[in-house]
Amino acid sequence: MTLNNIWVFAQADGDTASTATLELLSKANTLGGSVTAFVAGSAGGAAAAFADHGAAKIYETGDLAGSLPGPAVSSAMQAVISGGDAPDVIMFPQNYEGRDVMARLSVKLDRTVLTNSTDITVDGDSVRVQTPIFGGSKLVNSTFTGERPFLAAFRPKSFEAAGGAGAAGEVVSAAAGELGATGGATVTAVHVEETSGPKLDEAAVVVGGGRGLGDAEKYDMIETLAKLLKGAPGASRAIVDAGWVPYSYQVGQTGKVVKPTVYIAAGISGATQHMVGMKGSKNIIAINKDKEAR
């Protein structure tokens, strides 16, 4: 049995589809089965992009009314699955919402999860994912051995987003069931940090600053250089934790994945957790006083 039915956990910001979702839909569309996008909230204007990237069907939960997506979306997914539309694989982005939904669903369905993957292949009956470990120096190949659906999460930028699929994108509503105590968390306010210039994960040039800058004021140099190069400023976790710059600047395992034409690392040691976020850069310039810095 090959893959007949593949779901992608889909996200949109208003009417704009998330890039991570489009990447996953595009990959799903090459795996041979029919592709469904499962949206947290309403698909709205993003439905067209989902269809253009391969979604024949789009399930939407409708407004989550401030509740976090984990319990609500996993409940909606479970309801559709027990209603008879059971996917072979569900692909999630390895981001906050993706992993919360996947984690909840894994318990509801009693299925294992494979996380942080960067590739998926179907080989007859088996589905294999590949995951870089030890800062990307080794690639682990794992297969699912139990019952379907298989739950897998992929790091952003693992796949190219490819439009032009021209799928139907039929929108179907899929409401969450009664959440009980699990629905006890409510978002009461949303704060968005203002940024100018290109987005960190889309910029052609990224200038990253680390602890080697010495102190918070020196980060101005990074901002200035990024602006001059029409790029985006980024940061290591060390200086995010130290409060020099907000978390939204962080590059790495727990931050953003960037793949610019040029990544300039100033005063960054190149810890494995930082490397996984930028090793896909086409060119890397490291400015460091330590010749051995990676």
Partner: peptide
């Protein structure tokens, strides 16, 4: 913390 900033959340 969120990808764009942060959310205030109240939870039972």
């Amino acid at each position: 913390q969120t990808e764009a900033g942060y959310d205030e959340v109240t939870c039972t």
